[in-house]
């Protein structure tokens, strides 16, 4: 991951090392426990769970809960499963991530290579926007989305996520471009490259890593969002997280825990896959978003 192994000067005794390993393994189990619970219980019949077998491996293996969660579970009015909501999320996430990343890259470029008066203040304003409790904008946003006719639509959520996502994407690109040699930009200026040519030909080809970091971060955040989804798109246009919550909280009928677990995994799968494939970049984004500046 982002932090490289380094030769530490600290030496520890054998007994201490055994204790350290025990401690680390214990917590590894703690972190894995919910994942294990979700996985094993999503492939066993409901009766095994209610019969006290939550921690046991399935006696009878079944993919029925997965199929049910995906396509037939009762979530809204119709028994549609999570499938339509999954596609809602996809159609919200893809444009929102693309737009916020592109805007962030351009903003980062302007803020580092074309500095002007008050640029730090402007950036500060954008950055603070990342950390506000979004409750503070829910009321006017609901009114504006209603006014624009975007309430409950994917486009409405795209707008919301772009607006509240550009702070972070700008942060990433700004910090990345801040250490990009300004002399290259000046050389390109002398060579006669225009504002956009410089961005396209000089900066962008070197921006691969930070673009990956930014895309992963935005993807994870937007996919996992619940507050905006629940506030502005609770019906048929709801994203995956809202649908999962509706599935789990629904008070009608028998609680099908195995279906709930399968649904939870379905909701977690995209971000989890990204984490497994590109965890290094995810952690970099996490760190850049926390240790700012």
């Amino acid at each position: 991951m982002s932090v490289a192994m380094q030769d530490t000067a600290i030496r520890t005794g054998r007994a201490v090392r055994v204790l350290i390993y025990l401690f680390l393994l214990l917590f590894a189990l703690f972190y894995l426990l919910p994942l294990y619970v979700m996985l094993v219980n999503s492939v066993k019949p409901l009766s095994e769970i209610t019969g006290g077998g939550m921690m046991a491996l399935p006696e009878v293996w079944t993919i029925e809960p997965w199929l049910k969660a995906w396509s037939t579970a009762q979530i809204g009015v119709e028994p549609t499963g999570l499938k339509p909501y999954f596609w809602n999320s996809i159609s919200m996430v893809v444009p929102a991530v693309a737009i916020s990343t592109i805007l962030g890259a351009l903003n980062g470029y302007v803020l580092t290579k074309w500095r002007f008066r008050y640029d730090t203040i402007l950036f500060g304003l954008m950055l603070f926007a990342c950390f506000i409790p979004f409750q503070i904008v829910l009321i006017p946003m609901a009114a504006v989305l209603g006014f624009l006719g975007l309430a409950g639509t994917a486009s409405g959520l795209v707008l919301v996520h772009v607006v509240y996502g550009i702070g972070f994407s700008t942060l990433y690109f700004r910090n990345y471009y801040a250490v990009f040699p300004t002399e290259l930009v000046r050389a390109a200026q002398i060579d006669g490259a225009s504002f956009f040519k410089i961005f396209w030909r000089i900066l962008l080809p070197s921006s691969g890593p930070i673009a990956v970091v930014c895309i992963i971060w935005q993807f994870t955040n937007i996919w996992n969002d619940f507050l905006f989804g629940a506030s502005f798109a609770s019906g048929d246009g709801a994203p995956m997280t809202v649908a999962l919550n509706n599935l789990v909280q629904s008070s009608t009928g028998v609680k099908e825990y195995n279906v709930h677990f399968a649904g939870a995994i379905l909701a977690a799968l995209p971000t989890l896959l990204v984490y497994i494939v590109a965890g290094r970049y995810f952690v970099r984004g996490l760190m850049a978003g926390s240790v700012k500046g």
Partner: peptide
């Protein structure tokens, strides 16, 4: 670190039933 990649709704569901 993997829990950071999950939605709080997923986390909530898993712990709720556990």
């Amino acid at each position: 670190l993997y829990p950071m990649a999950l939605s709080f709704i997923v986390t909530g569901t898993a712990w709720k039933w556990f």
